[in-house]
């Protein structure tokens, strides 16, 4: 299904990004070329501090890049003004973070409803859809809990539900298992693969956790600011 003939959903070319200036300037991304296809789950791996998060932020249009182009779903993201980019992000992307980043004052259901509220959906309908989504991640009985009363794994499930409630075309996950122990990490990856992956969505997962490498369809290695190789992962049962 990752047919190279099909146009890429995300297409990065020659992406360069530096931080700081003068003597302290560090070039983190030194010319990234990367295609991510619809329906696939791509793992992005590399050393800690190697620029994985920076690349994700750039792909999401959260971070301005110095050079290069990024197209997402045919839209030249890197050329859009900031306001349009923010709007585009809200409409097409979902995020899962290492630190969950849930709003502490909101219940699980309200947290999941946030992306819908941002899109101006009414609160009642948003929360109703959020509850359905929570059921899909196995938290149907925890919808009215505050994050602080839930375990790390459960909080990350809320985050997954939140990332998916909007039916995003692009799901971006930054080290989603890093704050969790081994078994919980495995479960979260299974969940992301199960409910996150769909034919019209591409999923990017950044990780340096080798235990979850086999969850992807392809695995891209970020070394010294460049993508130095991309491997397909043989999986039994993968169509």
């Amino acid at each position: 299904m990752t047919t190279p003939t099909q146009p890429a959903a995300v297409r990065a070319r020659g992406v360069v990004k530096s931080f700081g200036h003068g003597d302290t300037q560090v070039m983190v991304l030194k010319g990234i070329d990367l295609d991510i296809y619809q329906g696939e789950m791509l793992l992005l791996v590399g050393e800690s501090g190697g620029g994985k998060t920076t690349l994700l932020s750039a792909l999401a249009g959260i971070l301005d890049i110095d050079e290069g182009h990024i197209d997402v779903l045919g839209i030249p993201l890197s050329e859009l003004p900031a306001r349009r980019r923010t709007q585009f992000r809200g409409e097409t992307m979902g995020f899962i973070y290492q630190q969950f980043n849930l709003l502490q004052a909101l219940t699980a259901a309200e947290n999941v409803a946030v992306p819908l509220l941002i899109q101006n959906l009414g609160r009642r309908e948003a929360v109703r859809r959020a509850r359905l989504m929570l059921e899909r991640v196995g938290l149907g009985d925890r919808t009215e809990f505050l994050p602080k009363n839930l375990s790390g794994g459960q909080q990350q499930r809320i985050a997954i539900a939140r990332a998916l409630v909007n039916e995003p075309r692009l799901l971006i996950c930054d080290e989603p298992t890093a704050a969790l122990d081994g078994p919980n990490g495995q479960k979260i990856m299974e969940l992301i693969r199960e409910v996150g992956r769909s034919p019209d969505r591409c999923v990017v997962v950044v990780t340096h956790d080798s235990r979850i490498f086999n969850f992807g369809d392809r695995i891209a290695h970020l070394t010294d600011g460049r993508i130095d190789s991309i491997d397909s992962i043989a999986r039994e049962g993968t169509a």
Binding site: T86, G90, E91, F95, N101, I118
Partner: peptide, 16 residues
């Protein structure tokens, strides 16, 4: 800030 950042990442405009 982090929570506002999350909202911004999810597409909340600065005006909102």
């Amino acid at each position: 800030l982090r929570q506002f950042g999350a909202l911004k990442a999810m597409g909340t405009s600065t005006a909102t």
